[in-house]
Amino acid sequence: MAGTTGTRTTGAAGARETPPGGASGRPRRAAHTRSRARRGPRLHVAVFVAPFFVAFSLFFIAPICYALYESFFTLQSSGLGLTEPTIEFSGLANYATALSSPAFVGSLGRVLVFAAIEVPIMVVSALALALLLDSARARWRAFFRVSFFLPYGVPGVVASLLWGFLYVPQTSPLIDILSAVGLPHDFLGPGTILFSIANIATWQFAGYNMLVLIAGLQAIPQELYEAARVDGASELRIAWHVKIPMVRAPIILITVFTLIGTLQLFVEPLILKPLTTAINSDFTPNLAAYNQAFGQSNINLASAEATIIAIISFVVSFGFLRVVNRKGNRAW
């Protein structure tokens, strides 16, 4: 990086701009003086960076610490309920409770299965759409791009409501058509519900992921294609051997974001729940945690469950990034 030269130039410029001991330097004097001794007053850097990091600390870091803290306590009520319940430190007891609860463990297993369904569908369909639109044979590109991307603007709640209407026989033209030609059409049974939810998520985000990939495809130098064409490669071979390897980084990016999205599945099952018995109130880890907090009023257990969800998404996404980064150049 150009770090060293940058330090010198901006430091010198800063010294010129802000006179030493400037009037506005009163708070944080100690830190201020120390850094000035080294490379001049840096108050403007703090002014640029601090507002974001104050908000980040309040609304990102503090809630995470608070959830961790709460997760180590348990509300103890005496056997007969005659005295006020007391809050006691209980170590990892909430984590043990969560991880030995069949409902919560079942919900974790369910989202992992869901991720195994949804991630390949999402990546393959976004990539297929991007390659089709990028192909030399495509026409009416603007129309297709807008229509694929349009569902991204439909809120998850509304998308789930819409597909919900398309999944029930009373209102669905799809079911009318499928049953007329004699095809199976149970979208809400225990065997199909995960696919029906995967469909809603794909519908919403495939077009957005496609745009990310198209941006990557457009950055490929044209000479690569020309060289391949001179060698007699077909469009399909160019797509497979030139285009896909060149968009490896954006593919990894959308894979990670899809993984994180699938692990925090919440809205779709919540909205579809009234339509089917295949979804219970512990269907996904987030639903289970929400149910613990607001249904059972057990915020300590809910905090432990939220922490487990966060740890799993970190482990999965960092683990995935490690694996793919080891194989070749870094994606990020």
């Binding site: 503090a62 995470i64 994180i260 692990l263 987030n286 905090s303 939220a306 969800i309 998404s313 960092f318």
Partner: peptide, 14 residues
């Protein structure tokens, strides 16, 4: 990478 839903619950408590 932090899931937004994970933050909502403790933010509510705070």
């Amino acid at each position: 990478l932090v899931p937004a839903t994970v933050l909502a619950l403790p933010t509510y408590l705070i």
